[in-house]
Design a protein around this nucleic acid. Sequence first.
DNA 1: TCTGGGGTCCTAGGACCC
DNA 2: TCTGGGGTCCTAGGACCC
Length: 419
Amino acid sequence: MFALIDCNNFYASCERLFNPKLENFPVVVLSNNDGCVIARSEEAKKLGIAMGQPYFEIKKLAEQKLVHVASSNFSLYGDISQRVMNILHYFIDEIEIYSIDEAFINLDQIKKSDLTAFGLDIRKTIKQWTGIPVSIGLGSTKTLAKAASKVAKKQPQFGGVVNFINNPAIDSWLDQIAVDDIWGIGRQYGKLLKSLNIATALDFKKLPPDWIKKNLTSAGLTTWQEINGQALVDFEKEKSQAKSIISSRSFKQPIRELGALEKLVASYTARAAEKLRADRLKAKEISVYIRTNRFNRENFYFNSTKIKLNPPTDYSPELITQAQIALKKIFKPGLPYKKAGISLTQLVDKNCIQPNLFENKNLENKKERLMRCLDKLNQKFGSKTIGSAAESFCGVSFLEQSFKSPSYTTDWQELLLVK
DNA sequence: TCTGGGGTCCTAGGACCC
DNA sequence: TCTGGGGTCCTAGGACCC
């Protein structure tokens, strides 16, 4: 038995915490470069603003309807997320943090007769201690718990907690959940299913498994089994080791010069390398990609290439050197590039690496100490305090964030002032 | 004019082997 | 004219998640 705790409209709710005037007003949060809408308050949803909609499409509406528009403030959201997760830990030892705004708990470890009341208690405490509203769904599988949390979010009469465990009405609720709202059914499968008149989670539940396997592959079959009450997706109490680390950005204005791209790729690589070292991993492979505007079909250019790293490394200068070599291989002069990114793949535990017979132990130790020093300085004095000259630090920002709220809880300079 | 970022998993098909 | 059978491994692309 599982419960899913899901923060409502999380980023929008975070923006409200320190700006209570926004309560009952529409709020949206934008992606990087203030490009797309990535979170909406209930009021904003009611205005018809869609998830992922480009900001320029709703700008007029937002002005007319006094929508509060916020650029994304991930240091704030990350910190509030931690506070919510800490409260869950207060109730229970083991939680599975599924995303920045969601966590599963395994109810088998709860010795309580009334699980719904337990959920209500969690919800009330999170709201009281952080100000963040959450929805909680309980189910005999993770997929059912997810579905229950959707009902909890949409049906206020349940006080934010819906229990599907031993619930005789479960099928009538599944009949009210759109098929593409099921965890594991996305846009493409949703389209396919709807074209066959399979509109709700209940319709999906009744499909023959062979058909699911054939058309939605094995992952789809797992979803079907979970909807039918067979728990296949395990509770994961330990965070699994990362398999890849990605760092990429779109540019507000297109970039044509190789030099500028080199600097950006270097800084993305430095950021990914920092994460790599924080996770005590090394990479066996680095890949780089660049692309032009994907909404301009005629002259679209995308290319990527990868380079093997032997031996595996977490040393920023080496990674940056290789990233720039890769970039030069795929760079075509004169194109208006809109995005570049790098990814580190084939990650291995840094302590489980076959050493090179001819490696210079002394030099390797020096490199490691240099990286440790770099990470410490950047931690203490702020990111990008020091770094590789290849990153330029030229002061040119390619990122636009016109509506960013202060980092109220993570930066001494930006604490909330109280009169 | 303007369109995010960071992940995981599965599968078909192509390369290779004998 | 006609051209086997049984494997493994890798990767690109496509699905999904938040």
